[in-house]
């Protein structure tokens, strides 16, 4: 299989407003692809359509060759697409470890009955889940905080935890919605390392929305630019930086910020 995700010509209308128009995308396994565009361009809407939160007005989406256009978000996650949110949506009142464990729930085999009676087979599965969760938390450097409430973590660690939670679902494709938002240059540098690292370690493909141009240009192999829902450019970081339409769309925004 050389295409992991194929988005074919999707459009979505809210009332009279076309939020995304004829958006297409192909992702190959192992790529890191960026999606950029000014505020309100429809980037998060694209994510919401891919993950099943919105249904497109027209167009189709295939994941590993299967049509996922009209599946529910949980079904799509089960197939191997995980995501994070622009405005971090952790389960803030639950401990860090539980956030990660929730991510594994979709692979649970035991029944409600087994769980309620805490049978031997359930205990075994729970133990395995915990071990995987501990491992994952070690990998992202949050093991020490595992019993803290997720909401009490500093901002940067919450971002990391959200990514860890997404990875817990055992995905092949991870969608990151502005992972570097609100981070200092130092932190975003670390984040870039982190994203590269998880791609290697977890063998995932990454599709990310990002405003920090340094981050986008630094790690993305390909970039798509949308403005007012319309795709205006597509290419390598170098091509995008020199694209007139992109510069126009970003007029007033310093590309080297």
């Amino acid at each position: 299989m050389n295409k992991l995700l194929e988005v074919e010509d999707i459009s979505i209308k809210f009332g009279g407003l076309t939020a995304v128009q004829n958006f297409s995308l192909d992702l190959k396994p192992g790529e890191i692809v960026g999606l950029i565009g000014p505020n309100g361009a429809g980037k998060t809407t694209v994510f919401n359509i891919i993950t099943g939160i919105y249904k497109p007005t027209s167009g189709k989406i295939f994941f590993k060759g299967e049509d996922i256009t009209f599946l529910r978000p949980d079904q799509i996650t089960k197939m191997g697409i995980a995501r994070t949110f622009q405005n971090i949506r952790l389960f803030t009142n639950l401990p860090v470890i539980e956030n990660v464990l929730v991510g594994q729930h979709l692979r649970l085999k035991s029944s409600w009955f087994n769980a309620s009676f805490n049978t031997r087979s359930y205990r075994k599965e729970e133990k395995e889940m915990r071990e995987r969760a501990f491992k994952l938390l070690e990998d992202v450097g949050l093991y020490e905080m595992r019993n803290e409430k997720a909401g009490s973590l500093p901002y940067g660690q919450q971002r990391r935890l959200e990514i860890a939670r997404a990875l817990a679902t055992n995905p092949e494709l991870v969608l990151l919605d502005e992972p570097a938002a609100g981070m200092s240059p130092q932190e975003s540098q670390e984040l870039m390392e982190f994203i590269r690292e998880i791609r290697e370690r977890f063998k995932v493909t990454i599709f990310m929305i990002e405003h920090h141009m340094r981050v986008v240009m630094g790690i993305c192999e390909r970039i798509k630019v949308i403005d007012h829902g319309v795709t205006i450019a597509h290419g390598t970081p170098n091509e995008i930086q020199n694209n007139d339409r992109v510069i126009e769309a970003y007029l007033g925004v310093d590309l080297n910020a």
Binding site: T77, F85, R89, V102, H105
Partner: peptide, 9 residues
């Protein structure tokens, strides 16, 4: 929403 995106039906 977050729960659903984590694969919970």
């Amino acid at each position: 929403t977050a729960a659903q995106v984590m694969g919970i039906n």
